[in-house]
Design a protein around this nucleic acid. Structure first.
Lengths: 207, 207, 207, 207
DNA sequence: ATTTAAGCGAGACGGTACGTCTCGTCTTGAA
DNA sequence: TTCAAGACGAGACGTACCGTCTCGCTTAAAT
């Protein structure tokens, strides 16, 4: 397969990196609401047009910056021996990620922008949300092959419940996603009874 | 204690109604991203100051407009006889609400703004999200008194799972919240096994 | 005749003056080519929109500034007794004006912009050039009544010759318009012979 | 001294022609205000650098294009027998030129740019305006040798009056330079009385 | 009845950022 | 060394809204 020919001056990788870095620094410093393209360009010592040429919105820029600099990925290739163990490992990786404040803030901003800007919403779902779902389906597929996947709920609903609960903590309650919640989710989704006498006094989540 | 009586011209209820109506109409027509205070004022034939005098942001205005004109409330006072039945009724009321497009769009916008504007975020949690949690806790409290509340997960986690799943469908997958998902959630949270042979052909949610 | 109703906040005279002053100062300092609306707004400590709201272009702004602050007007009401004397007085007032460097520069810029921006060209002709022609026609009309207006050239052509010569010095040769040139023009247009032996040694205009 | 012979690829005459042509076409189509180097380069299918390498500004480019494609020159070598006849021939050639709309527009733009861009102003005077003055001085010199040059005004002032009147029509009144004006100028400058009963009904130039 | 004190529609104000345009320069590979 | 192509840093453009302000005019309660 031949490469599409370059013509004219090639894109500056140095500028690209400077822009991604400046965007993350600025959003951490000022918050998404006060993040401006002009501010990013000034901090990166770059013309505004260089940003507009390559990214359709500041949210797309942040999404790429997050992927490049913060590593949103969650590993799913390891086989921990059972559906429950795989699920627990996935949840643990997720909450390690979502409990890092700069990551959580970034995710909040991106999810918010996805609601407000429909075109970005499409890209955010395709490039981020659906890839995370696919990662979870690696686990459910492996469980199905192993024979320990419960019949209900089906994997799509499992994904809705798992990601829904994580995102709700990030977006709504702003409580950290903790071990206890992971245990509860694993127990529910594997239909194991959680022993009643297990007590997690560290966080009595409401009442 | 008597009310501190007003001095000067009283607030115009006609203008208040015109503003709330104009805000809902405009957000439905143009989307939240293009909604402006100036646009609302022009459509309501009202001075901008009249909006700024009474609402701290356009999101607060929309929140009040939604509450006043669209009725976000979910009834929980009825006792359906069991935790599962109460839960199912609650979920059903929720998805009837979240499946109305103009309501779903409004909720999306408000949740988005709550991420971006911290001050509004506080008000949105207090005035909307926590009231919905309280409604659910009416059901879990009744179940506890009745004796059919499972020991795990505790009510706070139940709320995270229930609302998380609903919101995730609204914000992320944009699939309607349907009967099947309600059944799965009720089954999981009441620890009932869903019969494997139950088939819901209407929506095979992924794979 | 009733006055057009004021509605809303009235225009700020302080801002208007600050803008006119800033425009003249900046054009003197940087030249017309580097004059920007942003620069004027910044120097006048005014929002850009306040300029765009009231003037269609920076040339219109300069035209008003020149009229308000520099006084382009030439007096023609005095009767000096003869066509030649009136003409000489008019020319003298004109060259006193056009020999002031900041005025000459302003006129150069406005005439240039009038060539490049057709809409401004129309306004410049109506508001400046034609008013100057009218001033000259006051003199020719008076001469006609007095009976000492030569039959040829007619007043329109006289205006073309008089203003053409002045403008050509301003735009093309950039030589000062001097007494000698005024004498020559008066002599030609009144059909008087200039005495050959009159010598103006101060400026032997070419060769 | 031998010519420093070029090294490397020689200048492309095809590109030069394409640029000159594109410039004239574009300025005719869009007007000088909207003429851009980028636009010329695109229309000529030429790199921008090729323009910047050879011309210091778009006005210089237009000046060369006008000289090359439109022929600004006015013939003065013919001897028509008298100062008046030579002058009339010169004026006729001038008004034939200045009444061609695309030439007049070009001259307007160049004179405008000469006011705004001082460096181009110098070149425009040297390369265009002063050459035209020299052409007129050929006529006055011939008249002096012939003995029919009036003592006043001197040739420099004659040039100011002649070119001033022509340019004023082009820049200010935008009326065509016509036979009648030429007659008036010749009569004035040769001190002939124009017969009062001569009537030029085609253009009663004001009052 | 007059006065006082808001609230009202209207719209100008100082600001800020937008996304676009064009400038003049730089960096490729090909001619 | 020039050429076409096109990315680059720079910075002004004209627009859109922000949230504030200043008008004259209601509209009531307090005088």
């Amino acid at each position: 397969m031949t490469e599409a020919r370059s013509l004219g001056r090639p894109r500056s990788e140095a500028s690209r990196q400077a822009i991604l870095t400046a965007a993350l620094e600025l959003v951490a410093k000022t918050g998404y609401a006060r993040l401006t393209i002009e501010g990013i360009a000034a901090r990166a010592r770059v013309g505004k047009q260089t940003i507009y040429r390559w990214w359709p919105s500041k949210a797309d820029l942040l999404l790429e910056a997050g992927a490049a600099k913060a590593d949103f990925s969650v590993p799913v290739s390891d086989d921990h021996g059972s559906y429950g163990a795989d699920l627990r490992a996935f949840l643990q990786a997720s909450y390690l990620l979502s409990n890092r404040p700069e990551i959580a803030n970034l995710l909040r901003s991106l999810m918010a922008e996805a609601q407000i800007n429909p075109a970005f919403g499409v890209r955010f779902r395709e490039l981020f949300l659906e890839r995370r779902r696919e990662a979870l389906f690696v686990i459910t597929d492996r469980a199905r092959q192993r024979g320990d996947l419960p019949g209900r709920p089906d994997p799509g609903v499992v994904a809705d419940i798992v990601f829904g609960t994580i995102w709700y903590r990030v977006l709504a309650t702003r409580q950290p996603f903790d071990t206890r919640l992971a245990d509860d989710l694993v127990a529910l989704l594997t239909h194991d009874q959680v022993l009643e006498e297990m007590v997690y006094p560290e966080m009595l989540n409401h009442r």
